[in-house]
């Protein structure tokens, strides 16, 4: 059996080719896909998040770690589906209407994926209707909104209001983040969650969907 701690290391160092080939080897050896994710991949991304918060990792290190995790996940996800393994939660992610900034959004999307969530990424300039329609279609438990500009921030309130008005949305939660966003603003518009960084966003998403960290 392959020592999968090398998968953990490959993700943390952003080596996507090695991460992918190790995932393939592990699957070939009939390793349980869920245990690969839970024991090596999620812990690697959690560690990347911790290093980011401690200023050991910066945005580039986090981005390449997430890229390596995704490379492995592409092979593992079909096996998880075959085994009917449910993700930690389903999250619709996007930057709000009028705003085209996506570095932060992409980082959060990758971190959520690395945290065991299924991510539906709607890209940038997303209207309130698009968020809610995608959440309904995919049976998401959470919408994560990003904005970089104070000009586009009011679009967040529009999404929160639309979710509250949509019977189809059910228990759908909304979390927000981005450079100008604060907890005060989140409280004011009635958002369920807030994080001021990509790694914290994973913990916040876990809190909102009621799962504990791996």
């Amino acid at each position: 059996m392959t020592d999968l701690s090398t998968l953990y290391d490959a993700i943390l160092s952003g080596d996507h080719k090695t991460a992918r080939s190790l995932a393939q080897t592990a699957l070939d050896e009939n390793t349980d896909p869920k245990s690969i994710v839970d024991k090596y991949m999620i812990p690697a991304m959690d560690e990347a998040g911790r290093r980011f918060e401690a200023n050991v990792f910066y945005v580039p290190e986090l981005l390449i770690a997430a890229r390596a995790m995704k490379a492995a996940m592409e092979l593992i996800r079909p096996k998880l589906l075959e085994n009917h393994v449910e993700p930690a939660g389903r999250v619709v992610v996007g930057t709000v209407q009028g705003d085209l900034h996506d570095i932060g959004k992409n980082l959060v999307a990758s971190m959520l994926e690395g945290g065991g969530f299924e991510v539906i990424d709607l890209g940038v300039d997303v209207s309130p209707e698009q968020y809610v329609a995608a959440a309904t279609e995919h049976g998401a438990n959470l919408i994560a909104l990003s904005a970089l500009l104070t000009t586009t921030m009011p679009g967040m309130r529009a999404v929160v209001d639309l979710v509250k008005q949509s019977p189809a949305a059910g228990d759908l939660k909304v979390m927000i983040g981005g450079a100008p966003i604060t907890q005060t603003y989140a409280d004011e518009i009635g958002a369920d969650g807030f994080s001021d960084n990509a790694s914290g966003a994973v913990n916040e998403a876990r809190r909102l969907v009621g799962v504990t960290a791996a």
Binding site: G14, H16, P60, L63, I64, R67, N106
Partner: peptide, 8 residues
């Protein structure tokens, strides 16, 4: 990775 980061 540099090429990827540059685009990102």
């Amino acid at each position: 990775n540099a090429e990827f980061l540059y685009t990102q």
